[in-house]
Simulated scan of single mutants.
Amino acid sequence: MIKARVTVTLKNGVLDPQGKAIEGALGTLGFAGVSGVRQGKVFDLEVEGEDKAKAEADIKAMCERLLANTVIENYSIAVN
C-alpha cells in the first residue's frame, strides 16, 4: 500500500474569497497583522501496490481529471 498526500491551491492571481473571509475572521478574533490568506484542499490517498512511480503517475492523472481544476488550481503530490 502506498500513501500519498495531494495539496491543491489556487494559482497566483486567482481571487480567493474564502481566504479573504478567513483573513477577516482572524482579525475579528484578535489575530492582528495576518494578511494574504489563501485556502486550499488536502487529499490523503492510499493506493494499492508497491510501485511508487506507477502510483504517482496514477495520482497525477487523478489530479488532472478530478481532484484539481488545473485552469485555476495548482497541485503537488507527496508519495510516502
Rank of each mutant, 00 (worst) to 15 (best):
G40K: 02
T7L: 13
G19L: 15
Q18Y: 00
D51L: 15
G19R: 09
V37Q: 01
A68D: 10
A25N: 00
K54A: 14
E56C: 11
K54N: 10
F31V: 07
I22S: 00
I2Q: 01
D58V: 04
A61N: 15
I2H: 05
T28V: 07
G19S: 08
M1I: 08
D44H: 06
K20D: 06
G40R: 10
E64H: 09
G36E: 03
G30V: 00
S35Q: 10
K3M: 15
R5A: 07
T9E: 10
A78G: 15
A55K: 00
I72N: 11
G49D: 12
V14S: 08
V37G: 04
E48C: 13
F31S: 09
T28I: 14
E48D: 07
V47L: 11
V79L: 08
E50P: 12
V34I: 14
D58A: 06
L15R: 05
N74F: 05
T28Y: 05
L26E: 00
S76W: 08
M62C: 06
A78W: 02
T70F: 02
M1Q: 11
I2D: 09
T28K: 15
A21I: 03
V37T: 00
L26K: 07
D58T: 11
F43G: 03
V8D: 04
A78F: 11
D58N: 11
F31G: 03
R65K: 13
P17F: 03
E64P: 07
N69Q: 15
K11N: 07
K11S: 14
M1N: 06
E56W: 03
S76Y: 14
A25C: 00
L67R: 00
A53S: 08
A55V: 12
R38I: 08
G30D: 03
K54G: 01
G30N: 00
E64R: 13
V37I: 14
V34Q: 08
Q18M: 05
G49E: 06
I22W: 13
L67W: 04
G49R: 06
V8K: 12
T28L: 13
V79I: 15
S76E: 12
R5I: 09
N80T: 15
R5L: 11
I2P: 02
I59S: 04
A53T: 09
D16S: 03
L15S: 05
R38C: 02
G40I: 01
V8S: 11
D16W: 02
V6K: 05
A4S: 05
E48I: 11
K20N: 10
S35F: 03
I22Y: 03
E46H: 11
